[in-house]
Amino acid sequence: MKIKVNGELKLTAAKNLEELCRELGVTEARIATARNGEFVPAAARAKAGIAEGDAIEILSPRQGG
């Protein structure tokens, strides 16, 4: 199915956010996730299903002022 990850179209077979993170190779990274504008805590990723057209954001630490 087609979803958006960090603003870019992506084809995925992942059924939930945890599988998507594994697919993207960021499982071990220090990240936070959101689905369709809602924060999804790390502990809830396995239960956060993914559907066609979903918008996923995966953020990590950066410099800030």
Binding site: A29, P61, G64
Partner: peptide, 17 residues
């Protein structure tokens, strides 16, 4: 500090952390 999009597993977020 801030948060920005994870850029393809290049490790920059982890290094900054």
């Amino acid at each position: 500090v801030s948060l920005r999009r994870e850029s393809g597993g290049d490790g920059s977020g982890q290094r900054f952390w």
